[in-house]
Amino acid sequence: MRLARLGAEKRKSSSMQYVKFDDQVISGIEKSLESWQHVPPSTADEDESSMHQDMDNMHCSEAWRNGLLLYMYRVFWWKPGTRIPVHVARCARVTADHVFACREDSSLVAKQALLPLFFAGCKLKDESTRRKIVRLCSLWDEVTRYHMINSTVPLLKEVWADQEERGFDNVWWGQVVDRMHATQEARGDLLQMRLCFG
């Protein structure tokens, strides 16, 4: 939530002539995220079930940590049209891999990393990884029937189509969401789509 508020402040300050956003706050949060490590509880190795639960928690936490770093890159450091650095693509791949590493069948933990998985999907061109993301979201949708999961795949596909059309480095998912909302408002939809990632 703090990063979202800071993102709004940065956006607002960019339109003001005499206001400059202080990037030091962002750098501090970034360093904190980069140095954070999962600490297993004392019960993590009591039995195999506890070990699996701790591993799922670790992978989910790492997905969130890396997903927040992706969000920070896009909101605070990215310049439209500039090539995405390899370390950002690596961070996206690491995020996706951590989500994939959680147990699918018995663990509810991985679904909590839907937003970081979405961020990762928007930063990766690799078709194999994209297919895994779609498959996992589809599996979660079948099990849960939550709208937030159901709406993720069409939104990702819209982002990917825009990247194909306008160039990978020129598209941000926020632009796609804004366009979808504007289209709905123009049509006068009473029940506008709400995007919710858990």
Rank of each mutant, 00 (worst) to 15 (best):
M1N: 01
A8K: 10
E9Q: 07
K10C: 02
Q17L: 13
Q17V: 03
Y18T: 02
V19C: 08
V19G: 01
V25S: 09
E30Q: 11
W36V: 01
P40M: 04
P41N: 07
T43D: 13
D45L: 11
H52Y: 12
H52V: 06
M55G: 02
N57Q: 12
M58G: 01
M58K: 11
C60P: 00
A63D: 08
A63S: 12
A63G: 04
W64H: 11
R65Q: 13
R65Y: 12
L70N: 05
L70I: 02
Y71T: 00
R74V: 05
W78R: 14
R83C: 06
A89W: 05
A89V: 14
T95Q: 06
A96Y: 09
H98M: 14
H98A: 14
A101M: 10
R103S: 10
S106A: 10
V109R: 07
K111P: 00
Q112H: 12
A113M: 12
L114N: 02
L115Q: 05
F118A: 02
K123P: 00
K123I: 05
L124S: 02
D126I: 05
S128N: 08
T129M: 15
I133F: 07
C137R: 02
W140T: 04
E142T: 03
V143N: 03
T144Q: 10
H147M: 07
H147P: 02
I149F: 14
I149C: 09
T152D: 11
P154I: 11
L156P: 03
D162Y: 14
E164I: 02
E165H: 09
E165Q: 11
F168L: 10
V171Y: 11
V171P: 07
G174V: 07
D178L: 10
H181G: 01
T183S: 12
Q184R: 07
E185Q: 13
E185V: 14
A186Y: 07
G188M: 14
D189A: 11
L191G: 03
L191K: 06
R194G: 05
